[in-house]
Amino acid sequence: MTTGTAAITTTELVRRSIEGRRFSPVNALIAFTLLFTLLSSVVILVTLLVDTIAAALPVFATRGFSFITSSLSPRAEAAGIWQGIMGSLALTGFVIAVAFPLGVAAAVYLEEYAPDNRLTRFLNANIRNLAGVPSIVYGILGLFLFVEVFMRGMLGASEGIAGRNVVAGGLTLAVLVLPIMIITTSEALRAVPSGLREASLAVGATRWETIRHHVLPVAVPAILTGSVLTIARAFGESAPLLLAGAQLSLFFTVASDSSFYDLMLTQPYTALPIIVFNFARQPQAEFVALTAASIVVLLVMLLSVNAAAVLARDRYERRYR
């Protein structure tokens, strides 16, 4: 064996014994070209990170952490992103509270309970199509359903921010990621061997007992990894929030005596990716470095969570395959 650790498939053995060790220039050229296309993504990723960090350095060098802990301001030298970080965390809280339980429950129904009939096939097709709907269309849904119908129509929030509050934004993002949450959880449940279910049912457990004690415990690592990646997607999402009501101005204040209820329903909010968008479209040159610095904070928060989830999954896959 020449490769040592990596397992060799039958196909690879067949290929090697027939092809031998002869060098083929065409083979090498094509292999190189294909590898080049793959490595280009690595180069793009590195360029993007290096370019952004380089542009962001002056901000961190001169302002340090006060850039993170200050509020928004139209003056570039004083502007900070604290409101965006808080807003994004609040939005993420809604996504976890709404989309995670709903998504897991829906996936459990579709994988464990649903009979193979027309209704189930329709539900599955519908969820797949929802997963492909552009995020800005979810923004239109959020503007209509959560801002206009819920907040203005049912709760009568017509003054101030007129219902464009963090609850509406959070629900919009939750609805946006729900189909993806269902699909990743379904995949995790499908990977659980059916022998486990049959064994449990055969000794008299009900379906729910089987799911709770045998299926879910095995699927939990995969479900959590998928959910973390999905929630991270919501964290970086900005298009729907343009419509569902995040503040787009360079300056806004929250009344200092706001109760939790006010913060949720009557006070303006914004999100970190929205601040990035907002800084990026300012014509003044000082905002370029500020945009880059906000991106660095956004990416550090996002990629650390993402990387942890991907690494955890790879480790899990290696252990159980």
Binding site: S41, G236, L311
Partner: peptide, 23 residues
């Protein structure tokens, strides 16, 4: 290499918008 593609997929689109403008 596969996780690299996944990380690229996880970059928010607004970041790519800034990259398009500035780079």
């Amino acid at each position: 290499l596969k996780p690299t593609l996944e990380i690229l997929a996880g970059i928010p689109s607004v970041v790519l918008g800034f990259f398009a403008l500035q780079f």
